[in-house]
Nucleic acid binder design. Structure first.
Length: 321
DNA sequence: CGCCTTTGACCAGCGC
DNA sequence: GCGCTGGTCAAAGGCG
């Protein structure tokens, strides 16, 4: 996979400039293969840039794909029907594209290409058909039961049917400027693994939502390009409410900013994550939120927040209620 | 005592 | 077919 040109939802790392304003947490949502609508308005991250993200697997869900996953297609389609038809905006990626492989190859480029690679990319959603590709792990079943039986060693080697790869949940990744690796997002996570990342001095941590029926996972790693940046990848959608969140509270925190649209429903959405960041005071949170949205709007070249708001309100409100 | 982190090992997919 | 790498498991230990 290395070579294919992939485009990340590149935002020119706005936090560099806004750092002092944003504080320690600036969110830079990105993902690969944004829908066509975004391809046209957002800087694409070149292949090398993609690799710069620690070889971060680019085959993630795009911003909108994420939404797609969390909400119903029709709603989103409508929401994004600004310049393209839904079908264009949301298309699954084929397996080949997904393979992420590029992970590791970091090549040398260390600078984020200033050249916006606007080449577009196909939208990728691992969810869709993918499967995993990259590595679809085996479909391990709940261990313990039968597995233990003949398993010499711990691992369960479950003969999984061939051809039947396990389906991967949609993934959504974004970068955060933070001093801490594991950002508080309102959900409880259990770390289940950590691996060294090739070509990066920083390890990647694997977390799983502690809620029983929730299979959401997330990977957290630090960019070796800029250690202050934490790359977080969410996989799947929470099937429950955030234990600590209270949308109401979150909304209240945003009060200071009239321009700020209400947070989307899941913590998967960076906007909400931002809202849920631990903060010393609500004002700060509100400020960061506002800044983030502003940045987002700018990145998307949206006319104004109003548009952004128009794009998300229907489902946001629905979830809030 | 329960939950979480750490960590070494295992497994599967992919490239060569 | 082999080796590499990402992802996951699960035992052991730590902490509140």
């Amino acid at each position: 996979m290395s070579g294919e040109a992939r485009n990340l939802f590149h935002h020119d790392l706005p936090f560099h400039d806004d750092r002092r304003n944003v504080g320690k947490s600036g969110f830079i949502p990105f993902s690969t293969d944004p829908p066509s609508m975004f391809n046209q308005s957002v800087h694409g991250l070149g292949d090398s840039a993609a690799r710069d993200l620690n070889g971060f697997d680019p085959s993630y869900l795009s911003f909108t794909d994420c939404l797609h996953g969390a909400l119903d297609y029709s709603t989103l389609s409508r929401a994004f029907d600004l310049s393209c038809s839904p079908p264009d905006a949301f298309h699954p990626v084929d397996d080949a594209t997904q393979k992420t492989g590029g992970m590791g190859e970091s090549t040398g480029t260390t600078d984020i290409p200033a050249t916006p690679n606007s080449s577009v990319s196909s939208s990728s959603t691992e969810a869709a058909g993918e499967e995993d590709s990259g590595k679809s792990k085996k479909d391990r079943q709940p261990k313990g039961s039968e597995d233990a039986v003949d398993k010499p060693n711990k691992k369960v080697s479950k003969p999984k049917k061939k051809g039947e790869k396990r389906q991967r949940e949609p993934r959504f990744a974004f970068m955060t400027k933070s001093e801490v690796d594991h950002l508080e997002d309102g959900y409880r996570w259990r770390k289940y693994g950590q691996k060294a990342v090739k070509n990066s001095p920083y390890p990647r941590s694997y977390y799983r939502c502690t809620s029983q029926k929730c299979s959401v996972k997330k990977r957290v790693e630090r960019s070796f390009q800029d250690p202050s940046i934490v790359i977080t990848t969410y996989e799947g959608q929470h099937t429950h409410q955030s234990p600590s969140t209270l949308r109401g509270n979150a909304a209240a925190m945003m009060a200071p900013s009239m321009l700020t649209p209400p947070p989307p429903a899941g913590p998967i959405f960076p906007q909400e994550l931002l809202l849920q960041l631990p903060s010393t005071n609500n004002q700060a949170a509100a400020t960061r939120s506002s800044l983030y949205q502003q940045t987002l709007a700018q990145q998307l070249r949206l006319p104004d927040y109003g548009l952004l708001q128009d794009m998300v309100p229907s489902f946001i409100h629905r979830q809030l209620s």
